Computed example of a mutant assay.
Amino acid sequence: MIVHPDEDSLVGSVAARFITKLVDLLAENDEAHVVLTGGGMGGQTQRAIRDSSARDTVDWTRVHFWWGDERFLPAGDPERNDVQAREALLDALPTPAANVHPFPASDEIEDLDEAAAAYADQLLLAAPEGRKYPRFDITFLGVGPDGHIASLFPDRDGYRNADKTVVAVREAPKPPPNRLSLTLPAINSSDRIWMVLSGSDKAPALGLALAGASANEVPVAGVQGRKRTVFFVDKKAAADVPESLIASSY
């Protein structure tokens, strides 16, 4: 876990690390696959990437963008994560439209289960042979005060189902009630998972996750990237974390 003194330094540092890592990944691979998140910190981080003086060191034409979850709303609705990400970052990049993979909108596919299946098909089409999803290089996640990640909320069944990559979420405890989300196995298939969170309201969930709480009760506790899992946080969010768990550097 990396702790920063405030939100501005937090998002600036994450943006810089992200750009540097993408340059390295694209030096080694033909393309990179990134999973974006919504929420306040997701948007702030995306704007920091957009505004970075190093932004154009990345060959964005070789980057694919996916989402960890989405609110099941009509296309163009300002509450959708993909709409927010386009405004914050994607519209400023030369990434081809074919490399941007939003979840289906409610006015494109009316049935929630069919929409989940359609996104699973998108993942499969981009996957290497024998896999269900692309090789995700970096997955960004936010963390709710209740410990939820993507749209995987506490005390819900089915999100760890290894047979599915995408699930339909109904009666979510925060609006809107209908959502689409990657499952925990799909999230954990990512090489690197970066969780960016700030504020004292996140401290209890973060403390519980690092103390080994049940993933059913605190979903963020079940997150584990294949190569690296990092919490990037500010001092307020780290209030309940023992000093021994705080790293001095990445």
Rank of each mutant, 00 (worst) to 15 (best):
V241W: 02
A75F: 05
L22V: 09
Y250V: 12
T20P: 00
D56A: 11
V223M: 08
E7A: 13
V233H: 05
N29A: 15
R192F: 04
A54N: 13
H33R: 11
T61W: 04
A238W: 01
D59V: 08
R179Y: 05
T20H: 14
V100Y: 07
A75W: 03
D155E: 15
P102K: 04
R192E: 15
S13F: 03
V167L: 15
T20I: 06
G207M: 12
L123W: 04
F136Y: 12
D69Y: 10
D82W: 14
R192H: 08
P242W: 07
A186K: 02
S190Q: 05
A237Q: 07
D155T: 06
K202T: 00
P175M: 09
E171H: 12
G68W: 06
A239Y: 04
D8H: 14
V3D: 00
E87K: 14
A168N: 09
R62N: 10
V167K: 06
F140G: 02
S181Y: 09
R47W: 02
E171P: 00
V34D: 00
S106K: 12
V34K: 01
G207Y: 02
K164C: 12
A162I: 10
T139C: 13
R131C: 14
N188R: 01
A98R: 15
A48C: 11
F153W: 14
D77G: 07
G158I: 06
T95F: 01
W60T: 06
E87Q: 13
G130Q: 06
F18Q: 13
D157T: 03
A221T: 01
L93C: 10
D146L: 08
G68C: 09
S248Y: 03
V35N: 02
I187Y: 03
A105R: 01
D146F: 05
H4P: 00
L180N: 07
K174A: 07
A16W: 00
F153H: 13
T61A: 12
I193A: 05
G207H: 08
E87V: 03
R17G: 05
A221Y: 02
E129Y: 08
N99M: 01
N81R: 06
P96D: 10
R71E: 10
F136H: 11
R86S: 09
A150F: 07
L22I: 11
V83S: 14
I138N: 03
S181M: 09
H33I: 04
A48Q: 10
R226L: 12
H33C: 14
Y159L: 09
S151K: 11
S198V: 04
G12M: 00
L93Y: 13
A32D: 02
D24Q: 15
S53P: 02
V167Y: 00
P176C: 04
D113Q: 13
A98L: 07
Y250R: 12
N29K: 15
E31D: 08
H101Q: 12
D77K: 11
L93N: 09
A120F: 12
A239I: 05
D191W: 06
M41R: 07
F18M: 14
V34M: 10
